[in-house]
Simulated scan of single mutants.
Amino acid sequence: MRKCVLIFFVLNLLIVNSINSQTRIENSLLWEITGNGLKKPSYLFGTNHVVSYTFILDSIRGFRKAFHSVRQVAVEHTVSPDAIDKTLFMMPLDTTYQMIYTPKEFAFVDSVMKINIQNTRVTNPYKCKPMVWYLASIAKTSAKPDILVIDAYLMQVAKSSNYKLIGLEGKDEIDRAYRKMFSSSSLKDQASLLLEQLKDPQKSIMNSSKIISEYKKQNLNAFEQYLSNFEGVNAKERNQLWMEKIPVIIKQEPTLIAVGAGHLVGEYGLINQLRKQGFTVKPVKQ
């Protein structure tokens, strides 16, 4: 069970959600938030959950200045993997993989899974739902285990700089998001996704490469044609939840809000929602 939870905690850092966009914005990852009674600027930064932290230091103009001007950092969540409801990732006791695959399909999946779990502590991958392994397979093609990604770096530096670290979501919200993810598709649908991914892993590699390329160009408006739409992790719903907290947080102290770049764009993106509440949100060019 613990292995399933650890995998899914990593996956939460890897998934960037797509948003149906009707509102084009300037292409920038770092945005200054002013006005509406703020005494000092806060900043909004779009992260990518598989890109090395060195990217922001080398390529984001004004990032160091912005970071040193704030007093707290807000991220998507700070929930420990041990706190997540383990049952969300587990197969029902009355269902097996042999029941959701044909014998031929299961034989193929089993042959690949045995290779994938070599040199790991996993002894029985079939205790976890197919969606866990589907997302784990995508993550494997996207992330390099030996790099410190942007999100982890920002949390690490916030703590070492004695900044207040704020999670925009708590345990209940995280559990609800995962529960919704798994309830949005049947076990048979999850099994089909896993089968397709194991047969053609190059497809997700190509998609991941496109997303990372557009991210490094800071091309927010191009994200939508490349991002996968995971209905269970609802970007609109999460953004609306965050917008109940962000205005309060930034009025208390100047804050760097660092969330997946997909949450910035679109009608319900944080940039548009902050502007609707009367804040001035503009890209940082230097």
Rank of each mutant, 00 (worst) to 15 (best):
E237H: 13
V248G: 06
N20Y: 12
G262C: 03
V265C: 05
T102V: 13
F8A: 12
A139L: 07
I84L: 10
N48A: 09
T96A: 03
K188P: 03
S21Q: 14
P41E: 07
V73W: 06
K164G: 04
Q252H: 03
E196T: 08
I174D: 06
E173F: 02
Q197T: 10
T78F: 09
S59I: 00
N20I: 09
E32Y: 13
K199A: 08
D151G: 10
V10P: 04
I246L: 13
F45D: 05
C128N: 14
S18C: 01
G170L: 12
S183C: 01
L187T: 06
G278F: 10
W133I: 15
G37F: 02
N20H: 11
L194T: 06
Q118K: 09
S111G: 00
K65A: 07
Q286T: 10
I257G: 01
K140N: 11
I7T: 10
L14I: 09
I84M: 01
S137M: 15
I84F: 00
R64N: 06
F8W: 11
L44Y: 12
G62D: 03
V50G: 05
E253T: 03
N124I: 10
F223W: 05
A74S: 11
A136Y: 05
S59K: 14
S111L: 13
N124A: 14
K114D: 15
A107P: 03
E231W: 11
F89W: 06
K164P: 00
L13Q: 15
S18H: 03
S59F: 04
M155H: 06
N17W: 00
A258V: 02
I100T: 08
M181K: 07
A158W: 03
K285T: 08
S183L: 09
R61S: 07
P283F: 02
S111I: 00
V5K: 12
L38A: 09
K216M: 15
V5A: 06
